[in-house]
Every structure is written in C-alpha cells, then in structure tokens.
Amino acid sequence: MGDRRWRRALPPVFAIAGVLLIWQALCAAFDIPVWLLPDPWSIALYMAEEAVLLFGHVAFTLGLALRGMLLGVAAGVICAFLFHLLPAVRAAFSPLLVASQNIPLIALGPLLMIWFGVGILPKLILLVLVCFFPVAWSMLAGLGQSEPQLREYLAMIGASRLQTFLRLELPASLPYFFAGLKLTATYSFLTAMVAEWLGSGRGIGYFLVLQYKGFKTTGVFASIFCIVACSLVLYGLALLAESWVLSRLRMGGSRSKGGGRA
C-alpha cells in the first residue's frame, strides 16, 4: 500500500523539479535581470534569509484564514440544515444566496471597510461570505441524496422527521460536506490574503503589496510561494479530515461514494 503511494507521488515531484531546473537554466542562459524574473535559487535564498519575517506574515494570514473558514463552514452547515428542514426558507432564499456569490469581492471589500472599519470584522465577513457557500450548497445536495430504501425503511418503522435527519440524512451527506470543505479550504487562504488589502499592517497579503510596489520581484515570488504552499496545506488538512471521517463511517472516501464493495 505505502509503496504504491510513494510511486504515485514520484511523477509530480519529478515534474516540479524539472520545471524549476528549466526555469533556473533559462534565467542563467538569457541573463534575465532579477527585478524582471528572479531565478528559483535566488528566491530560495531570499526566503531563507527572511524566514522569520515571512513566517510572521504567513502565520497572521493563516490565523485569519482558519478563523474565517471555521465561521464560514459553520454558517454553511447551519444554512444547509435550515434550507433542508424548511423548504419554504429554501425556496425564498436560495436565489438570493446564488446572487450573493456574484457580487465581486473587489466591490464588496471597500464597502465592508466603509461600514466596519479596518479591523478584523470586515475581513472575517468577507471570508465567511466566500467560505460558506461551497459547504452550504454541496451539503444541501447531499442531504437530499440519501438512499431511498433506507428512507422507506425508516418511514415504515415510524421514525420521526428529526430521527430520519439525524440517523440517515446527516451521515449520508458527509461525503458532500467534505467535497464542499475541500473547495472552501482552497479558497480561504487566497481570500484572507485579498481581505488584507482592506487595510492591514500585517499578513502575507499586505507583504505582497509592499513588495510589488517597491518592484521587489523576488519578494513577490517568495510571497506567491508561501501563499500556494499554505493553500495546499489547508487543502491537505481538509483531505486528511475527509479520509479519516469517511473511512471510519465506511464511506470509502472519494474513491467509492455510494457504491459498496462486492
């Protein structure tokens, strides 16, 4: 098992190493100036030198992203429950909800700043708005997807609405919940970074702006690496949570949703 896993990880590792090598070679061959396109080695050196500074900014943004994600996911789950249990609420509010996802962040950000100042609140609101939707929407789909035979069985033995919800619909919606969580995890760090543009003195988003305004291209690239790495880590954590929970519930992860083994 473990052996196969390592073998599967090899091709992408080689691909990434290849891209970095070609990049390094091109920078050297054409003598590209650092302010135009820094080579990977210089970026790595810069990151090593400024590790403490970068870490401080990343930690701040990560904290913001995690808090926003937690609130957003909670809001998404509550929203899914409400919509599922109260069809009238669903009918009334679902168009509004979809519309809310089409408001451009660039327009919303300044508005939130005007209303709520430059503190943590407008940033968290922005994050919640972005994070809750994937969870709410996919979990709502999942709550309506439970096995008809099990539903019929529960009806025949006289299970109440709440019992059907807790014993069937809720567990059956978990694979969908995690699908939403993974999407949210991908977006949350990026959104936290954008939120920092709404007036912040800290965070990797703030640092990034500082760097490109000073034409410090190496710093820009270092920020990009940090951002990508953090997004991947958050996604990886969501993936781990998913496989841990779903394997405990015999749902076989993303591998075999619904389809049982023979």
Binding site: M156, I157, G158, A159, R167, P171, M251, G260
Partner: peptide
C-alpha cells in the same frame, strides 16, 4: 406509523453502522 415491525426486500442496513449498531439503532427509534 410506528406500530409494526418491518423487514424490507433489500436488507436496508445502514452502511456506516456495525451490525450491532444497526439493530440497536432501530430499537432506539
């Protein structure tokens, strides 16, 4: 509802519950 016990054509066991939990869960209902 809830006055008869019922055995359907398909086993209709909950895949995320063990055999014991499946039976116990129905009894709790």
């Amino acid at each position: 509802r809830g006055l008869i016990s019922y055995m359907p054509q398909q086993p209709s066991l909950f895949p995320w519950l063990t055999v014991r939990q499946n039976i116990a869960s129905a009894l709790v209902i």
